[in-house]
């Protein structure tokens, strides 16, 4: 466990240094690009905020090897994602699937934004209606008198 933490810590420094990702191993460039593309979508269970492409944890190396092996055996990306989910759960996916239990996660921000904008618009339109109360002549004169008195006080002081 301590080794994992150390690996996580060290790989953090590596990220600061030059945001490096793991070195490609296979000779086949096209295959390697697919391996890394898929690895970036899979979370490392040990360093939980890193994908298995970024992490140097032992398990991440093993899982990258699995991805590489299965891709070269002809499996497609979805099949490999399913393989990972069957073993480690939805947690392994950086993009959670849309289903009943994740509906709040997917739609929550949208609902919040719509409600927020709605409340804002309602308040703004209400404020516009309330503004500028109409005064009759007597009220105007009284207001003017008050303002002038105020000005005089100011100059006397």
């Amino acid at each position: 466990m301590r080794r994992f933490l150390l690996a996580c810590g060290l790989s953090l420094f590596a990220l600061v240094a030059h945001a490096q990702t793991a070195e490609p191993v296979a000779a086949d460039q096209a295959l390697e690009e697919r391996v890394m593309a898929l690895s970036h979508k899979l979370r490392c269970l040990v360093c939980q905020n890193q994908s298995i492409a970024e992490s140097d944890a032992d398990l991440a190396v093993d899982l990258r090897e699995q991805v590489r092996e299965q891709l070269s055996a002809g499996k497609n990306e979805d099949e490999i994602a399913d393989y990972m989910v069957a073993r480690y759960g939805d947690f392994v996916l950086y993009e959670p699937p849309m289903r009943g239990s994740t509906l709040l996660l997917w739609l929550g921000p949208l609902v919040l934004a719509v409600v927020g904008i709605g409340v804002l618009m309602l308040r703004l339109s209400r404020r516009n209606k309330e503004s500028a109360p109409v005064l009759n002549e007597a009220q105007r004169a009284k207001a003017r008198a008050l303002l002038e008195k105020d000005d005089n006080n100011g100059t006397q002081a």
């Binding site: 466990m1 994992f4 269970l45 040990v46 398990l59 093993d62 899982l63 699995q66 073993r87 480690y88 759960g89």
Partner: peptide
């Protein structure tokens, strides 16, 4: 090689 470990979803011993 840890292959059975992966099948069992082992991520931390």
């Amino acid at each position: 090689n840890g292959r059975v470990g992966i099948d069992f979803g082992v991520y931390g011993v």
